[in-house]
Amino acid sequence: MVNPVWLRSLIALAETGSFTRAAAALDLTQAAVSQHIRQLEGQVGPVVIRRPRLLEWTPTGEALLDHARELEAADRRLAARLVGADALSGEVTIVTPGSVGLLLYPLLLDLQQASPGLVMRHRFAPDPEVIAAVLDNRSELGITTQRSEDARLAAEPFLHEPLELIVPAAEKVRGWVDLERIGFVDHPDGISMATRLLSRRFSGNPGVRKLPVRGFSNQIGLILEPVARGFGFTVLPRYAREAFRRPEAIRVLEGTPEVVDTLWLTYRSEWPLSARARHVVSRLSEMVAAGPSRA
Rank of each mutant, 00 (worst) to 15 (best):
R77N: 07
T29W: 06
Q30K: 03
L104E: 04
L102C: 13
G17Q: 10
T20E: 13
Q43V: 10
A73P: 05
V48G: 01
V100Y: 05
E41V: 05
H67A: 11
D86I: 00
E56Y: 10
E91S: 05
L28R: 13
A68M: 03
V2D: 12
L40W: 14
A24K: 11
P106A: 02
L118C: 00
T29K: 13
A24G: 08
A68W: 07
L82V: 11
L109V: 15
R38W: 08
H36V: 02
Q43N: 06
Q112S: 11
P106I: 03
L82G: 05
L64H: 00
P106E: 01
G101I: 12
L103Y: 11
I11D: 04
L40P: 07
L109A: 09
D110A: 13
S34C: 15
V83W: 14
V95S: 14
G90L: 00
R69D: 02
R76A: 08
L7W: 07
V33A: 04
A87M: 01
I94C: 05
S18T: 09
L111S: 01
H67S: 06
L64T: 01
A31M: 13
T58I: 00
T96Y: 07
V33C: 03
D66G: 12
L64W: 01
V2C: 12
E62A: 10
W57A: 04
I11T: 09
R77V: 03
T20N: 15
D27K: 13
A25C: 14
R81L: 14
R69I: 01
S115P: 14
D66P: 10
L28G: 06
D110L: 12
T93R: 11
A114H: 07
Y105A: 04
I11M: 08
P4I: 02
A24L: 09
V83K: 09
A114N: 04
L107T: 03
G45E: 05
V47H: 01
V44N: 11
R50W: 10
Q112W: 12
P52H: 04
S18K: 10
L28D: 03
L28P: 07
S115W: 14
A14E: 11
P116N: 02
R8C: 14
L40T: 10
T60R: 10
A85C: 05
V47N: 01
